[in-house]
Nucleic acid binder design. Structure first.
Lengths: 234, 234
DNA sequence: AATGCAGGCCTTGCATGCAAGACTGATCGA
DNA sequence: TCGATCAGTCTTGCATGCAAGGCCTGCATT
């Protein structure tokens, strides 16, 4: 169902080639893909439904920049979905476990080769693949969306980038699944997500005024019409 | 984000005014809503992304008719999401519980008044509202989609229509939540979904030949190229 | 030098036009 | 009477055209 345009854009975004906040011009994309604006608009609309891009009326399309609230909610949603899936899933058979271990090998390779974009993708996709192996399409789609948003979240923040720690967590989760202890796998997944979320830094460039505000040591305006004449604490 | 057209269509579908399998003409909808086909197409595309309508190329748009496989997967997804949400959620406070009890009162009213469409909506929305009360938007959106698809599923089947049994399950779930026993609520939710799924009848009109086959007392063809000349068991 | 203002350029929003596939029904032939 | 073919009509698919809103730049003014 997703056409090539949606796929290309999504790939470019989750691989970091299109940074959060980047503007996407319908006309430019149309020319780049060799189609009319109509198809580009449809692809963008689908990505908007997935919270991957956002449109500002008459302004343009932009790669989404999830704020802290949204980030927290996405992580909470992932905890719920991943825990629920593992807690209600039947134990995996040998072939499914083998595929997970193959994925772990991929992660190892990416780490060894220092292939950062690929690693980012793999770390997120690990969780989606677990669900995908169950064959449940609705849940897989849900997980793919949530992991895409998670990638966007970490791209917006100075992630502490402990890929090795995450990889170790993944190994442990696969171990639990392989031993048939789905409840343990569920618990480990939640802890893993907690760890990843805790490792997220502050929002990078929350808005263009942040640097200025920081320089001037002004507090963020409590609401719309706040003191432009606040006494400077020198 | 969802415009009025998408909302109207979705409402008409989940309330049963637009039956599963019904065709939706872009031109007719455009005229009905007083807009051009463009906006109708965008709304339909969004509903397609939510698996509520489907398009057959050059044929037309149709209200989705989930098959048994999809139905099973949607129920499995709901089990995972609802269980995971309750198992990872913090206990509800008094106001949240009060809102759930208000919902139960609505269900009671609808049952008392025999308001079938409203009841169908309320029974599905109960689960979405539990999640909505947590304030988690991504998860709420996920649940709303899954419940909409669930409604579509029961509309396709001769549901055994034990609204009272479902209501009793809901009362029990709210009771568990009220007592702070989220693990119990999670377990009850999964059992409730199992019961609802088990109560689903066979697919109504799996294909246009079903009625004929039933009338003639023919067995369903075992596979594609099966006996059009089977001896009639008179 | 700083500020207000206007013209132009950029963007999307939406309608419309045209082409092509798929089904329907009628007509023609055997 | 049955079957096949072909025109007509319906549908979507996609491109394009036009209008309207927001922003940026350059100029005039103070």
């Amino acid at each position: 169902m997703p056409d090539g345009i949606e796929r290309s854009l999504l790939a470019a975004i989750v691989e970091g080639r299109l940074a959060p906040g980047a503007q996407l011009s319908e006309a430019q994309l149309a020319e780049a893909f060799g189609v009319s604006r109509t198809l580009v608009r449809e692809a963008l609309a689908r990505l908007q439904a997935r919270h991957v891009v956002a449109v500002r009326p008459r302004r343009g399309w932009f790669v989404a920049r999830p704020d802290s609230d949204e980030a927290a909610q996405v992580f909470a949603a992932r905890r719920a979905v991943e825990h629920g899936f593992l807690a209600t899933a039947r134990p995996f058979d040998a072939e499914q476990v083998a595929r997970l271990e193959a994925h772990l090998a991929e992660e190892r390779d990416a780490i060894a080769q220092g292939d950062k974009p690929r690693l980012t993708y793999l770390m997120g996709d690990f969780h989606a693949r677990i669900v995908a192996l169950s064959g449940n399409e609705p849940l897989t789609e849900i997980m793919r969306n949530l992991t895409a948003r998670t990638i966007l979240i970490s791209l917006c923040r100075q992630s502490s980038d402990d890929a090795l720690a995450s990889h170790r967590d993944h190994v442990r989760i696969v171990g639990a699944i392989a031993s048939g202890d789905m409840a343990l796998a569920a618990r480990l997944s939640v802890e893993h997500l907690d760890a990843v979320e805790a490792g997220l830094g502050r929002d990078t460039a929350p808005d263009p005024l942040a640097a200025l505000r920081d320089t001037l040591r002004l507090d963020p305006a409590p609401d719309g019409a706040a003191s432009p004449l606040a006494p400077s604490p020198h």
